[in-house]
Design a protein around this nucleic acid. Structure first.
Lengths: 144, 144
DNA sequence: CTGACTGCAAACGTTTTGCACGGTA
DNA sequence: TACCGTGCAAAACGTTTGCAGTCAG
């Protein structure tokens, strides 16, 4: 567990217990949406307000401490900002994972073809994760 | 202008005037959000209801006739479903453009590294479009 | 001690729903 | 003619705001 306090200070945010636990929860889960975050927080702070969760998500997202991850047909999830990466989304179990790959080639190609000056490349791969592939195989074997 | 009527029939949807114009508008604009679509429709159908727009967007999105385009910090925009492509988004003027590039290489790399069976690769490039680059240069030249 | 943060309640904006009428096939 | 689609109004949902009290620095 990293030194969130110092990081928050850098963003002029106070290290309240609610906020500390929010960050901890986001790091543990990797990616989480507002509802699930709120539910987790309720276990520790029964009187926490949804408004507080929103206010903190917003303040931490605005200054770049957190990032939004938007995927079609899915509620927005949040993650700690980290070095550039892509996302893997399992359309079967909804798992969302980071993957670190080199985007340089495809980015260069797009820049060349379009004339855009590209500052960021967002990639989400949708498919079936290894675990779900296994499960599907077991099922199709059973039903033979 | 393509034969929307036949396409709609394939999806068991009736070709109402409202729906036909929605599709036409989406094709013209390329990508559009609910609000702007509603405003355009009002010009032709002054009594059209927002509920109708939502209902049609939903029915046409569910069966794949339309696709959602979600970009961080932006309202969801809709486009006609078409062959796989990526998106270019200008963070200066908010233009959203299609770009047809080969995603095979980066997709293969991700599949190999992760073990996922990848069915779709969503890519959005964020940057500055050629027009805005020009404008910026003119400004910086003027103020020299 | 002071300003930022919290919880609560109300406000606000967006999306969905139910219903009676009208239009497409 | 039979339903699906429309418009309207209300409901439901998600998010933001204002305020008074509390806590971190």
């Amino acid at each position: 567990m990293k030194d969130y306090k110092t990081q928050l200070k850098r963003y002029d945010l106070k290290a309240t217990p609610q906020r500390m636990f929010m960050i901890n929860e986001i790091e543990q889960k990797g990616h989480i949406d507002i509802d699930n975050l709120y539910k987790s927080l309720k276990n520790i702070f029964p009187y926490i307000s949804l408004a507080t969760v929103y206010k903190n998500i917003n303040s931490m997202t605005q200054n770049g401490f957190l990032s939004e991850v938007k995927i079609p047909k899915l509620k927005t999830r949040y993650e700690l900002s980290k070095e550039k990466h892509a996302h893997l989304f399992c359309t079967n179990c909804s798992e969302l994972k980071d993957i670190f790959i080199d985007k340089q080639l495809v980015t260069n190609k797009a820049a060349e073809k379009s004339g855009y000056k590209i500052n960021d490349t967002l990639i989400t791969f949708e498919g079936i994760c290894p675990k779900c592939q296994e499960k599907n195989n077991m099922v199709s074997t059973e039903t033979k």
